[in-house]
């Protein structure tokens, strides 16, 4: 044995830091939903930092209804072997057996996602039992910190998936950022009551109050349809963007995917944004939030 010393990282604090750090590497990037190996290759070629392997994109889940579950492992494996970038996959809220299966498949990140039909209406997965990292959705700071408390190593604000409407994503990122600023300005004696009121672990509330940010990377998601939508969320303070139906439900996925990648890097440069927004064809079909039958963002406890 040479002089180097390997550390056991299985489900340990070091494993958690490795998992948080993978999310750090994704910053400033776009994670795209894909349903086939061909789409995965288009996403990778367009500059996606990771892909989310799915059977149906959220817009189709909405349209077709019924119970939405974890994807067939065959699809996930085919997508995994098609690309070199990280591959994520979704399991249902609380469905820890789906998560065990995804871990066995050697996926890079699990999304315990409200876009799928919840398997448990009271409890999320104990993510600390897993070696594989988890990303979870949140509408506000309390929800984000509860998920982190359970072991999530990345957060995404929920938005309203499959709508092509960015209004909920904006609401959620503004809410999280606003609540962080509020905690920063509170005297310490008020923080315990703040933790009680938002239903968040006290130690994580203290962390946010001291550091002015979440202890993990925070992406935005849900309703991103254009490069301008993506840049808007970046300017509002997220670290990167998930695009679900927005790419492969548009008329020119390849061009739109490339444009959104550039918009996330140059989110502060209106000249670049103007240039990449030109001639992208039709965006995905969109919906008004008031007319939705199901609001996925309300799933999560």
């Amino acid at each position: 044995m040479s002089e180097e010393k390997f550390k056991d990282t299985n489900a340990s604090p070091e494993r958690y830091s490795l998992n948080k750090n993978l999310a750090e590497m994704l910053k400033g990037g776009v994670i795209m939903d894909v349903t086939t190996p061909e789409q995965a290759k288009i996403a990778e070629a367009a500059g996606a930092v990771a892909v989310m392997a799915l059977e149906r994109v959220p817009a189709d889940i909405r349209k077709q209804g019924g119970v939405a579950r974890m994807s067939d492992p065959k699809i996930i494996k085919a997508i995994k072997s098609a690309v070199t970038i990280p591959v994520m996959a979704k399991c249902r809220i609380g469905h820890f057996v789906e998560a065990q299966i995804l871990e066995a498949l050697g996926i890079d990140y699990i999304d315990e996602s409200e876009v799928l039909t919840p398997a448990d209406e009271s409890f999320h997965i104990d993510k600390k039992k897993f070696k594989v990292p988890f990303v979870c959705g949140a509408r506000n700071l309390g929800e984000a910190l509860r998920r982190i408390g359970e072991g999530a190593s990345m957060i995404r604000t929920k938005g309203e998936a499959g709508t092509g409407n960015v209004v909920e994503a904006v609401r959620h990122i503004r809410t999280v950022m606003g609540e962080i600023r509020k905690l920063q300005n509170m005297p310490k004696e008020e923080l315990m009551t703040a933790a009680k009121e938002m239903g968040a672990p006290y130690d994580l509330v203290l962390y946010v109050a001291e550091n002015g940010k979440l202890p993990v990377v925070n992406f935005a998601a849900g309703g991103v349809a254009t490069p301008a939508d993506a840049a808007l969320l970046m300017q509002l303070g997220c670290d990167g963007v998930f695009v679900g139906s927005g790419i492969f439900k548009s008329s020119n996925p390849e061009k739109r995917a490339k444009a959104i990648v550039k918009a996330v890097t140059y989110y502060n440069d209106p000249d670049v944004l103007a240039q990449v927004s030109e001639d992208l064809g039709e965006a995905m079909p969109s919906q008004e939030i008031d007319k939705l039958e199901d609001r996925y963002a309300e799933r999560g406890w």
């Binding site: 010393k5 550390k7 990282t9 490795l18 993978l22 871990e103 890079d108 990140y109 070696k131």
Partner: peptide
Amino acid sequence: SQLDSFIAEK
């Protein structure tokens, strides 16, 4: 994959 990420010291 990410499951094989690790920390060493040297």
